[in-house]
Write a protein that binds this DNA or RNA. Structure first.
Lengths: 227, 227
DNA sequence: TTTTTTTGAGTCAATATGACTCAAAATTAA
DNA sequence: TTAATTTTGAGTCATATTGACTCAAAAAAA
């Protein structure tokens, strides 16, 4: 991973007001909350059937983009007025996260959002409302979830090498890992199985692995804490 | 803990239809989601300022108590008709859990709920809609959160003995723990500090401890997984 | 006074971890 | 063609942690 610390953002422009926000949208009356999330993600990224985690709900009474708006501005077009009304609502955000390979994604604007782009995670302070807090919360949750769930599997092909897996984990944990120790631990869990050899270019051929279907992917001995 | 595996439930009776449900209610337009939860909990239990965890959102498009209703029944009173309308809505539930000492709680009925009672966890199948799934989800989340967060602190007095803490953890994990090993691990984390001696009845006096304020209460070395 | 119960402290083998070295397989350079 | 370089797989070893114990101290009960 060259630079995995990047999030998808949308830009909304009204008059002189400019918002950079995380992708989001409404849940329809007769729609699963999860289906709504998948619809919105699909609209913006084309991604389907990837692994998400619902990590937080932001439900403060005063959560609105109205505070970011310049209220005395004149909003001319009907579209702008509708957008203004939308932005002034009180939002309850049910937040999901997913890890994806951004090199394989073609971002598109959506119904409510003008442009879509990748924002380096060290620039999240530019985000409107409390969206920087949401990113922070997502990252915390991701680290906490790491030892249990293979959310990272969105980032790996069906067959991958141990060095590939290690590079991924290193980028999530943001630290280097001793290669022999990583290999020892991962293999000892039995969560992956050798399925072939990487015959591609590079140097010495690496063994190819796959996650064992339906198998426990926990990195820590569940519910054991040293007692 | 004699029998900690118990949840609070409300019973709703309309005509011959009978629902046993988890406590719940609406979020008002200008109310924090969290404040609403606290209000509902307070109404039903009188509990204030306890530690909660928001663990899941249940948002299926067909989540309604309408499916549990006998539709051809005649609902006579205005109250019953209002209740019927309420029960037939599509619900999105933002779910919170807390661990409490049920021996100290006096349950009260609320605006929407007729009676309040404790239901042993092995009888959750009696719950209406998907509330049994919610309880299951809460338990899973609780176990996953165990090594990190002191949600259990609701169950302990400000000053407690190590055997008391151990009994609590044993009841949550539903297994016995070796006493010397538990003591060694807990003390090695430095999350609690000795604050006195238990001079009460019983046998040999036990040391009293308190959680160190603002201290990390993680039982596992964060973000270390054997590599 | 003796026994029983409960709590605090310690031992020790087995296991897991952290920090390494070394060799094999392929590419690249000489 | 050979040597150096890079990447991957395998192994070593001291240290730290864990799991299963024993033992003694303090208080109540016999």
């Amino acid at each position: 991973m060259k630079n995995p610390s990047t999030v998808i953002v949308n830009r909304i422009s009204i008059e002189k007001s400019d918002f950079v926000v995380l992708p989001g949208g409404y849940v329809n009356q007769n729609e699963d909350v999860e289906a709504a999330m998948e619809r919105i993600v699909s609209e913006s990224t084309g991604l389907e059937k990837i692994l998400f985690k619902q990590f937080a709900v932001f439900g403060g009474a005063n959560r609105s983009f109205g505070n970011n708006l310049v209220h005395h501005k004149v909003f001319k077009t009907a579209s702008e007025k509708a957008m203004l009304k939308w932005l002034s609502k009180r939002f309850v955000s049910i937040c999901y996260l997913a890890l994806v390979d951004y090199s394989k994604i073609k971002l598109k604007p959506t119904q409510f959002m003008d442009t879509a782009a990748w924002l380096p995670i060290n620039q999240v302070k530019k985000l409107a409302m409390d969206h920087a807090d949401i990113v922070k919360s997502a990252h915390d949750s991701l680290l906490k979830e790491m030892p249990y769930a293979p959310i990272a599997s969105n980032l790996l092909p069906a067959r991958f090498t141990l060095p590939e897996l290690q590079a991924l984990v290193e980028s999530i944990l943001n630290r280097t890992i001793d290669r022999p120790n990583f290999r020892r631990k991962i293999l000892s869990t039995g969560m992956i199985a050798k399925v072939g050899v990487d015959s591609s270019n590079k140097r010495r051929p690496a063994d190819l692995y796959s996650f064992k279907h339906g198998r426990n992917t926990s990195l820590i001995d569940e519910y054991k804490f040293g007692f």
